[in-house]
């Protein structure tokens, strides 16, 4: 198989996948080593990036690859889609940030940091599948623990949790206390 054909196949695979496709998955499908597969994927990424006439770009999210429309084109897509676009309130974003950096943690811990009740927003985030219940904390009352989901990574365009901004800074801020 020559590179042109391979590129076409991988592009089609990524396009038709429901979830972000991982390099390992692609490698298995096209029966190629992971290193070679990554090269092909990178070629596709550059193809789309370098040509401004494309409305799509190849995003690396939740440890996989996915075609997405360019952010600048949001206006046009919203005209097409009838569904309400995703909206996240300040409270929702704050709670998400706290859970993302400190997971897994309890509702009480979230509320301790924010200083206000979070029950409603927490439920909303669970319904949007941006957070999940990640077990129970050992200790009195065994309260539920919350953590972020793969959907969270997908929505925020993050490859993994290490990609969260400024993670090191907060570690420093609290490690010396």
């Amino acid at each position: 198989m020559d590179i042109t054909e391979l590129t076409a196949i991988v592009e089609a695979l990524i396009f038709s996948s429901e979830k972000p496709l991982k390099i390992a998955q692609i490698a298995e499908l096209i029966d190629l080593p992971v290193g070679r597969t990554a090269e092909v994927v990178d070629r596709i990424r550059r193809n789309f990036e370098e040509c401004p006439s494309h409305g799509l770009f190849l995003a690396e999210v939740a440890d996989g690859f996915q075609f997405r429309t360019r952010p600048a084109l949001a206006f046009w897509i919203k005209k097409l889609q009838k569904a309400k676009p995703l909206r996240l309130s300040t409270a929702a974003l704050e709670i998400l940030a706290i859970i993302a950096y400190r997971q897994p943690l309890t509702r009480a811990s979230v509320e301790q940091i924010r200083g206000v009740d979070c029950g409603g927003t927490l439920k909303n985030l669970l319904e949007k599948k941006l957070i999940r219940i990640a077990g129970k904390k050992e200790g009195p009352g065994r309260p539920l623990l919350y953590a972020t989901t793969d959907s969270f990574l997908e929505v925020f365009g993050l490859r993994n949790l290490e990609e969260l901004p400024d993670l090191k800074q907060i570690d420093q801020l609290f490690s010396d206390k």
Partner: peptide, 22 residues
């Protein structure tokens, strides 16, 4: 810190708000 982190997260290009998938 978390307020800033939330602002940063909010300013990302969000799936379903700023960019879309097939």
């Amino acid at each position: 810190f978390f307020k800033q982190a939330a602002e940063t997260l909010g300013s990302c290009s969000l799936l379903g708000r700023d960019l879309f998938v097939n």
